[in-house]
Design a protein around this nucleic acid. Structure first.
Length: 423
RNA sequence: GGAGAGUUGCCGGAGUGGUAACGGAGCGGAUUGCUAAUCCGUCACGGUGAAUAACCGUGCAUAGGUUCGAGUCCUAUACUCUCCGCCA
């Protein structure tokens, strides 16, 4: 969420950002509500002041035994009027908050301009896209003989897009999770195992609500949302908390299953693991001082990149343009791995700086050294990484002409020393 | 699922209708010189304002209600703890 004062003072810029993102946020509605809100507020505060003074006078008279009935009677109408205006105020505040909660974040100055994902800028790349002396099989074809996962049975017991991992596939997936976590821990991240369901306040805090409600699984009975990423519970760990400056930065890593309805994306990336309703991901989350957040973003990107380097998977880094930036992000890098059979880049990680957009919603602040006023922390997160697409990338990149798959070296210790997955 | 207790500022903690004690931490200041002590000050959010001045309003889990006035009384909800039941 943006600062109301910022919107008030920079309304043209905010409108321009909304246009660039193709967002329909009602900025004029916010400004309009703001004028009304402040007018009512001034009026109601005056009434309350009068009421408080009268009440004090009643208290004084009762103490001395004087008659107070006249003041009491006069104050009744003041109170009634104040209550009426309070209701009007709440109403306009709610309208304003609702509108404000739908305004996307402002992109950082270093974010490239564009009109679609096609305008994302390649920031850097690592490794050479792998070539084969034979025609590489895609992950589904490899699976025909290797039996690493079972989509038909997943569809039978749950539904389309719910994979079942089997045998070496399950073990490889688990090895990836272990490897990711261990790597992050040795890089100074603190491990968290969060709940997989969150309440509405948490989903609102990270920005899934209100705009992306239809992308989350929801239990009506319990009013709980299945998490689309560990970012949601982990960032909300510190909702409504106040840090000391010396507590920062805080670096967490967390494994969780992730659940996404993917409403509206039917027909896109429907093949196998490319887009599924449930997958595993290790997420990194940081809470930092405002002045450090862009340096921390680069460090976070490097932390994510290191994983791909260790797996020896060629990748490129995109800096997302303003049109492609997600709702809450001020700047975002996507890491994409080359999939030689698909012959395309697969997004395996998103590393974002949200600045104070989330912390303002969640009320996460720190008190600067010197005892100054509390300030909002900046929050960042990055996937490090999601296993589904990494699984695809490993199978395609590490396949042999025998139809087997070599286990990347760093994963072998997590797979009982297994070097090659065979039929 | 049943019964009971509780939720107050950064932390601890008092307060049963008259406008949030007290203690501690952190920070700022003063003072004394020896790894510290002592004293003073210091909650947050919002409104009016050029203002980091001043004034005002709001905030005691959340949302309502009663009242001239609510931390305190009433209703609902959430969460925490204890006991019982059931169960991994």
């Amino acid at each position: 969420m943006l600062d109301l004062k910022f919107v008030r003072e920079n309304s043209e810029k905010v409108k321009a950002v909304c246009t660039a993102k193709g967002d329909q946020a009602d900025i004029d509605g916010i400004l309009d509500a703001d004028v009304k809100r402040r007018a009512i507020l001034t009026e109601v505060e005056l009434l309350k002041k009068q009421r408080n003074e009268n009440s004090a006078e009643v208290a004084r008279r009762k103490k001395t035994g004087e008659d107070a009935s006249e003041i009491i009677e006069a104050t009744q109408s003041i109170s009634a009027k104040a209550k009426e205006l309070d209701h009007a105020l709440t109403e306009i505040e709610n309208i304003q908050q609702e509108l404000l909660a739908k305004v996307p974040n402002i992109p950082h100055d270093t974010v490239p301009h564009g009109t679609s994902a096609a305008d994302n800028v390649v920031h850097s790349s690592w490794g050479e896209p792998k070539t084969f002396s034979f025609k590489p099989l895609d992950h589904l074809e490899l699976n025909d003989t290797l039996k690493l996962f079972d989509f038909p049975r997943g569809a039978k017991i749950a539904g389309s897009g719910f994979p079942v991992l089997t045998g070496a596939g399950a073990r490889l997936n688990r090895a990836l999770i272990q490897f990711f976590l261990d790597t992050h821990i040795s890089n100074g991240f603190y491990e968290i195992q969060p709940p997989y369901f969150v309440n509405a306040a948490s989903a609102y805090g990270t920005g899934q609500l209100p705009k992306s409600q239809d992308q989350m699984y929801y239990s009506n009975e319990d009013e709980l949302y299945a998490i689309p990423t560990a970012e949601v519970p982990v960032t909300n760990l510190h909702r409504d908390e106040l840090f000391g400056e010396s507590d920062l930065p805080i670096k967490y890593c967390a494994y969780s299953a992730c659940f996404r309805r993917e409403a509206g994306s039917y027909g896109k990336d429907t093949k196998g693991f490319l887009r599924v309703h449930q997958f595993d991901k290790v997420e990194m989350v940081k809470f930092v001082r405002a002045e450090d957040s862009y340096a921390e973003l680069e460090l976070l990107r490097e932390d994510a990149e290191r994983i791909l380097q260790a797996l020896n998977l060629p990748y490129r880094v995109l800096s997302l343009c303003d049109a492609d930036l997600s709702f809450s992000a001020a700047k975002c890098y996507d890491l994409e791995v080359w999939a030689p059979a698909e012959e395309k880049w697969l997004e395996v990680s998103s590393v974002s700086n949200f600045e104070a957009f989330q912390s303002r919603r969640m009320n996460i602040r720190y008190r600067p050294n010197g005892g100054d006023k509390p300030q909002f922390v900046h929050t960042l997160n990055g996937s490090g990484l999601a296993t589904a697409r990494i699984l695809v990338a490993i199978l395609e990149n590490y396949q042999t002409d025998r139809g087997t798959v070599i286990v990347p070296e760093v994963l072998r210790q997590y797979m009982g020393g297994l070097e090659e997955i065979t039929a």
